[in-house]
Structures are given as structure tokens and as C-alpha cells.
Design a protein around this nucleic acid. Structure first.
Lengths: 241, 241
DNA sequence: CGGACTTTGTGACCGCGAGAACAAACTCGC
DNA sequence: GCGAGTTTGTTCTCGCGGTCACAAAGTCCG
């Protein structure tokens, strides 16, 4: 409802806190940011919504509407300035400064995450790796020493950590989440195949590999079934070559 | 994605519900299946929609509606039979038989995926690991020999693979996807931070770690800003929480 | 300097999905 | 056999999100 538009004065001090950016838009902003970064690396100074949209894999109207939630940062008849728009998106997401992150559970996946460059780049800095298993402690992964899980609260307080990553087995996930919340973490990225229960005010996002595969399997099954039917009765909603 | 239009099945009604299960429901079915499996392991024979919904972290009405797309597999006044419902969901998703899967890109993440038990359990079998780097080839990861990327087409044909996992750097992702499609793969799970372009009929799901973190960062920023405002002027919007 | 062209920003419309409420149907106790 | 209690399956409504189409606003060229 354009409650935010109200055309406040622009200028650098415009805090105008863009109160409500739709979740769907928030999920796409990082994609736009990545595309813009890629363009900047190729020394492309400006681009149109059409080009951006194609590179991001979305509809151009959707992209323009998404960007319009941040403000009017384009120039009609010209397009968007790559650097300027990059900065505006980064500022809106909050990745102009670094976020300290801890990873709990340094198994195969945890080690991969610790080493993942995309994690440390773009505004995130892994400050600690934790694991409950004694044989992991003291080992060095991705240049960081693995510390005991019991140090969680201390580290979170010392480093002002607000984002935690869970890559422990499913059975331990809820306990880890509880401890994280207790320690003051308010955003959790959960790789364990378990449903986490957290108090209001804490955000949880889950990445579940086997669920993703099962969704693909469902569509594969349907494709196969459809192909069978097509073979059976010849022509039904065909490809219309 | 892949909007399957032209809903022709209007008459059959209750029977043959295979036609159109909403995407949002499809994404939740694996969660229900996991909960049901957990219940079965604890020798619980039946449960109500309320219990299931609580364990899955969803609304009970939503759960019942989701299940109703599969058919009427519950008993009013009683609930759902755990084993029966498990089988029905598994059948609908298509994980009653195993799906062969290949993983391309055996770096840190690829190795973690190959070792991930949740991958191999529940209807998926990793049949091959591929990597273009020569120093990887011949090595054994998770009990499988790493084979050259050039063998892709041969393996896909021999093993009837229809699902492929991409865990290569972003710059190589599109080439790998193209080769996969060429080889006959029609479902791709992409871990590379890149937008994939595939022909219609091919499903792509992406798992992007840095995007997930950025979404969390956005919400963290907003929480911080809100807290600041609350400190500043004490009472603005009636959040009152 | 003005008109044609380009591209953004947004209003209108539509379909999907979430949630509440209720009728249907099954079991259990007497 | 029947009524009470329970739980499913479904209907209705509402809001979010996606797409189209167009006016606004800028550039460029003659």
C-alpha cells in the first residue's frame, strides 16, 4: 500500500527505513547483487532492467518492481548505474559491513562450509568453528581452530555474533539451536534435516538437501508418467512443434 | 517453474489426484514423510493431523489439505496410519524405488554431499562422482572412484541417470548443466552460485548458501534498526511485543 | 529547441496459497 | 443399535506475489 512512498527528501541522510520489503523480493536481491558484482568486474558501468533481469533469470517487470521497493535508483531512458545500484542493494540487505558467523558441527558438511569462499566473501566472516566431539577439537579447518561446543556462549558474546550455522546430525540440531538462542544468536541457517523450534524473534532458514532431491524426484516421476501417457494415447497437449 | 498448464482432468474428481499437486504442497511432502518415518521408528502406528502438523512445524489445516491432494488416506475420528500414509506419500513423490544420482564437482562440498547419508538414504543412490581436475581422478570418495567429467554421457546412459548434482565453481556451472542436459539428465540440483539456463522440460533447483545468509542478514539489519528506533523514541509503531 | 525514442516506475488484474470454520464420517461406550 | 465425541476433508475468504500494460521522465538528434 505505498505507505512508504511519501516522497521524503532524498539526500544521503535518507533513513527512510523502507519499512516493508516483501519476502520474495528480499530473496532475489542477493541474486541481483551478484549479477551487478559480475558486471562491475567486467567494467560495465550501467545496464538496463532488461539486461539485469536476463542475467538474474527473472522477468524485467518483476526486477523493476523489486528495485522500486528500495527507491528510485534508475534513470529513465538510460538504466541503472552498476556501482550505485550495487551499493544501494548491499546497504539495504545490510552487507556493507561484515557479519560474524559461527559454524557448529564440523563434519564433512561443516568443513565444506568453512572452506566455502562464497561464505567468507560478500559480507560474512567465519569467526569460530565449534564441535562437540573431542577428536575434532584442536584441529585446524580453513585456518580456524575447532573449539569445544561449550565455548559457544563465550564466543558469541565476545564477537557479537548474531548468525549461526548448524551442520550437526539431526538428532543434535534442536539442542544446538536452543544453545544458540540462549547465547543470543537471532538468525540460524540450519543444514540438519530437522524441524527447529525457536522463540519468536529468531529467524531460521533451512537448507535440506534430501528434500530438494525429493522434490526433483516428484517432478521426474510426473515427467515419466506423462511420457507414458503420451505414448499410450498418441497426442495429448503435445509439444506443438 | 515449468508451469504445467492445460489442466484437462476435470471429471474424475477424487480419484486420480495425480494431476496437479501444488508446488507448495510438494515441497512439504518430504517433511511429512520424514516425520512419519521417525514415528514409525518409534513404533507409533497412527497419529492425528494435529500431531503430525506439530512435528512438521505447520498448521494442521494446511497439513490436512496437503494430504487431501493425494487422496483420502485418513480415518475420521481416528487419524492416519503411519505406515500406510508413509507409503502413499513415498509413492506420490516417487521414492519407492531408488533414483540414481551423479555428482559433478568433487571439491569440499561435493565430497560432503557424497558422504552425506541423507543423500543415499531415502530413495537416492549416488552412482558416480565426476570431476574435471586430473588430480581428483582415480581418488576414492565415499566408496566411489572419481571419474573424469568426459565420462558423463556414458555413465548417464548406462545407469539411466535422470538427476544430477552440480557442485562446481560458478564459472563452470553452465557448461556442466549444458553437458548434463545433452546427456539426457532432466533434473538438476545446483549448488553453484550461478543462474542456470536450461531448456524447457528440465527442472532446476538451486541451493545457494550465500543467498541464504544474506537473507538472514537483511532480517538481522532490520531487527537492529528496529531496536535502535525503540530505544530512540520509545513508542512508535504499536508492535508492543 | 522540440519531437521521437528509450527505459523506468507503478497501477490494475489475476491466480496461488494460507488459515479459519464447518460438515461428513468414523469409533467407542452403553 | 444409537448417541456422543473425535478427527478428517473441504469450502470460503483474504492477502501476497507475478505479469501486463502504460504513463512519466529522461536522452538524443535534427
Amino acid at each position: 500500500m505505498t505507505a512508504r512512498s511519501t516522497n521524503t527528501g532524498e539526500g544521503s541522510g535518507a533513513q527512510d527505513p523502507h519499512r516493508d520489503i516483501p519476502e520474495a523480493t528480499v530473496a532475489r536481491l542477493p541474486v541481483y547483487l551478484r549479477v551487478l558484482t559480475s558486471l562491475a568486474e567486467r567494467n560495465i558501468a550501467s545496464c538496463s532492467s532488461e539486461e539485469l533481469a536476463a542475467a538474474a533469470g527473472v522477468n524485467s517487470a518483476k526486477l523493476r518492481k523489486d528495485l522500486s521497493y528500495l527507491g528510485s535508483y534508475g534513470t529513465r531512458g538510460v538504466g541503472y548505474d552498476v556501482d550505485y545500484l550495487s551499493y544501494q542493494i548491499a546497504r539495504e540487505i545490510g552487507v556493507t559491513h561484515d557479519w560474524p558467523v559461527i559454524i557448529v558441527g564440523i563434519g564433512n558438511l561443516g568443513q565444506a562450509l568453512a572452506n566455502f569462499s562464497g561464505f567468507s566473501s560478500r559480507g560474512f566472516r567465519t569467526v569460530a568453528l565449534l564441535d562437540a566431539a573431542e577428536q575434532m577439537q584442536g584441529r585446524t579447518v580453513a585456518g580456524l581452530e575447532v573449539r569445544p561446543f561449550a565455548d559457544l556462549a563465550e564466543i558469541v558474546a565476545a564477537e557479537q555474533v548474531s548468525i549461526g550455522v548448524i551442520s550437526v546430525p539431526a538428532t543434535a540440531a534442536q539442542d544446538v539451536a536452543d544453545a544458540m538462542v540462549e547465547a543470543g544468536i537471532s538468525s540460524i541457517l540450519n543444514f540438519a534435516p530437522a524441524v527447529l523450534n525457536v522463540p519468536p524473534g529468531v529467524d531460521v532458514r533451512k537448507v535440506d538437501l534430501s528434500i530438494e532431491l525429493q522434490i526433483l524426484a516428484y517432478h521426474e516421476s510426473r515427467k515419466a508418467a506423462e511420457a507414458d501417457e503420451t505414448v499410450d494415447n498418441g497426442s495429448e497437449e503435445g509439444i506443438t512443434a
